[in-house]
Design a protein around this nucleic acid. Structure first.
Lengths: 233, 233
DNA sequence: ATAAAAACGTGTTATATAGCACAAAGGTAA
DNA sequence: TTACCTTTGTGCTATATAACACGTTTTTAT
């Protein structure tokens, strides 16, 4: 069963940050331009070089934003979780995408044409502040990440990634199993290392009893120690 | 002679991007909150951890934004040129500074309290779009930079830095001497390498006739080749 | 002008990490 | 089942780059 139309209440719940600053007329306008799209596991959402057309908000699932670099090596730049907005930066900068996006898991995404967003921005300053805040936060993270990825050693980078995944996607009922199951390759691409080094370092962490690994399932056991490793690099 | 008050015409000339979207009343308000500060060569403008209070616009000089990382190593995150705005990101993200800023050369900087900027933003959507654009551009650059610094080899990173310096600060009358004279250490910190490797690689470029070095003066001779080196990593 | 301190340059060594080869395990399709 | 492809795991080797040591040159301060 495919829903043709969503009620405004449903939309309001899906994209609260965007919805809340709007006037009633603006809400109606947005509701008319609101579409929903599903993506399968591992499906590409957009590619590097494409022209951005829509603001996207991830309603359900997990997404990676990545960049293919030198010699087939891929770098995961950031990951998106529930209720996060993405794909709008390039439009605002008047560029094509410099990154690509793909679904880690089956995803539901809401799309709003950027022309529509810009129109709302021209008449709603509060909405502008929302984007300013969001971009400012992301820029800070990106700057921090540049230094982490370039200066920390392998163990520090992997420990940081594990803690980051816990922060972002949380844990299961046992309070320590990461809720996201990544391939070793994705974990490597997130941490700027080769797949074999991700595998090796992960095993080392396991024999040091910092984590327990069971296939792609990772339990964080000694978080304090991981934080220490992440910090000292 | 210290100027106490600037005419609105002078302010308009100094910060056109910020000034242009404002109404007359808003211009008056901004003019009342506009101050100017000078910094000496190598002087620190702000430090990591401090609380941001002012939007800054560089009127004259050259500034580096950097981050001290693991083991005393410093990483230059971006550089600021004439008429560029900085120091506002952390305020919008509601954070303390995660970077520091220092003057490469004697600088004149205009300061506007962030409270004043936010007040203007609340009533002027066009001004909001200016910040959205700027942050979007910077975020794209930061993402690109993350991949360059992690994946390119030393020669690629240094070549990229040299080309980047030309793009940013331009060249002297001869059309090939970089207008900025950096220490080898700053060049290294910009390119994510040790000082000795910056020195060595620079000499290599010189013996390959890609550049001519005369102390801190660098002439780009074979820009095409440098672009190639930068691109292939 | 002189001393002191930075910055620059170069050779050597050490090491973190990539790269490669190959085997085992697990999942997928016919 | 069988075959096949992807992912995971492990050992070995190669190499890019950091780290160190030391001399020289340039800048800064007194």
């Amino acid at each position: 069963m495919v829903k043709k139309e969503l009620s405004e209440a449903e939309i309001a719940e899906s994209i609260p940050d965007l919805w809340q600053p709007l006037t009633d007329a603006q809400k109606d306008y947005l509701a008319q331009n609101f579409t929903i799209q599903k993506y399968k596991k591992n499906e590409t959402i957009y590619c590097e070089g494409e022209t951005p057309k829509h603001l996207m908000c991830l309603l359900k699932g997990k997404v990676k934003i990545y960049k293919d670099g030198v010699g087939g090596r891929s770098q995961i730049i950031r990951v998106i979780k529930d209720k996060e907005y993405f794909a709008y930066r390039a439009y605002f900068a008047n560029e094509n995408f410099v990154t690509a996006a793909a679904a880690f898991e089956p995803c539901t995404i809401c799309l709003i044409p950027m022309t529509c967003i810009v129109k709302l921005l021209e008449e709603n300053a509060e909405l502008g502040l929302f984007f300013i805040r969001q971009l400012s936060i992301d820029l800070g993270i990106s700057d921090e990440r540049t230094v982490s990825l370039t200066q920390k050693h392998i163990r520090g980078r992997l420990a940081e990634s594990l803690l980051f995944l816990k922060d972002t996607y949380g844990v299961e009922e046992d309070q320590c199993t990461l809720s996201i199951y990544l391939s070793r390759e994705d974990l490597a691409n997130l941490s700027n290392m080769t797949t074999s080094n991700a595998i090796r370092t992960l095993s080392n962490f396991a024999s040091e009893k910092l984590i327990i690994i069971d296939g792609r399932k990772i339990k964080l056991i000694d978080e304090e120690k991981l934080k220490k490793i992440s910090k000292i690099g």
